[in-house]
């Protein structure tokens, strides 16, 4: 493979990560962590495959992916945003629920090919890739140059004060979770439609949700940072097939993205500590000293 092809593959591999990570970034900017990305992507992929097989429409496939993830995220909205249960626990529960539901919904599709997503002729990238590239600048505009974005950040920084000033914290947060879920769902749908001809199999999105969450941190909760982090991890997936040539056993190559993300996470944490940086969304690191 030539470098240009690898770059292009990297972009394609980065797309589901980018969609899910930007969604999670929105959630975390509203002051909550939804660890259920992995589950929402799984459900998104399964629902997309099912809808693709039965309607034959790519648009319906992507829409169902988003919708299914939103329905799953409703559990999070009710449990965490409304009832106030522990966000970490509920996030994990969402992962398991999503994986299980994906297997059920996916089994309806029966492994048949659905609606493949192919690159736009002459451009080399497909529609969703194009849209996902436009998303970071749009989100940047919304976050930093619109009152909606200011409200979202305000809720994330100090929910009590936001409520005292009359912002409907639950509404803002609930919407953030649902938008995040929709993006994760489309990310999952993209995996099925673009990588597997709209076909679903168990574990098709395995691990991507977690990497997306790590990418949010590595991108420092900034749309453009997240874009960079996701593209770099996407490149890792793209060069994976090249590693066996270098003598690395094929099975161990599967660990490469995770090892790299773990290493990046360690380095990023150490750098943040050295500089004394407090994340913009203070949801991950409490005020622990060390």
């Amino acid at each position: 493979m030539n470098p240009a092809a690898i770059m292009l593959t990297g972009l394609s591999e980065a797309t589901p990560l980018l969609l899910a990570a930007l969604g999670e970034m929105i959630v975390e900017r509203s002051g909550r962590v939804n660890l259920g990305v992995e589950g929402m992507m799984a459900v998104g992929a399964a629902a997309a495959a099912y809808a693709g097989v039965y309607t034959g429409s790519l648009a319906a496939s992507l829409a169902f992916g988003a919708l299914a993830a939103c329905l799953l995220a409703l559990v999070y909205v009710v449990a965490v945003v409304i009832l106030g249960l522990d966000q970490i626990v509920v996030g994990l529960i969402l992962v398991f629920m999503g994986k299980g539901l994906a297997d059920i919904i996916g089994s309806w599709a029966g492994g048949a090919p659905g609606t493949p997503l192919t690159p736009i002729p002459g451009l080399g990238i497909d529609l969703v890739e194009t849209a996902s590239l436009a998303l970071p600048p749009i989100l940047w505009l919304i976050l930093y140059h619109s009152w909606l974005g200011v409200e979202l950040r305000a809720v994330g920084e100090d929910e009590e004060e936001a409520a005292a000033r009359g912002i409907n914290v639950r509404l803002v947060r609930g919407l953030a979770v649902l938008v995040g879920a929709a993006l994760a769902g489309i990310g999952g749908a993209y995996v099925a439609d673009a990588f597997h001809y709209g076909r679903w199999f168990s574990g098709v999105t395995e691990g991507l949700g977690w990497i997306a969450i790590a990418d949010v941190i590595l991108g420092y909760w900034h749309p453009l940072g997240v874009l960079a982090a996701c593209y770099l991890t996407g490149l890792l997936f793209a060069v994976k097939p090249l590693l066996p040539v270098l003598g690395v056993p094929a099975e161990l190559v599967d660990a490469a993205p995770y090892l790299a993300v773990l290493a990046a996470q360690v380095v990023a944490t150490v750098i943040c500590r050295r500089l004394g940086l407090t994340p913009p969304a203070s949801v991950w690191w409490g005020e622990l000293t060390g």
């Binding site: 009152w147 200011v150 409200e151 305000a154 920084e157 100090d158 004060e161 000033r165 912002i167």
Partner: peptide, 23 residues
């Protein structure tokens, strides 16, 4: 005084103005 630490002063004040119906 409880202001949002990550916002600029203008953003913080503007937020209150909006919510007071004087956006």
């Amino acid at each position: 005084p409880r202001l949002f630490p990550g916002l600029t002063v203008a953003e913080d004040v503007g937020l209150t103005m909006r919510l007071a119906g004087r956006g």
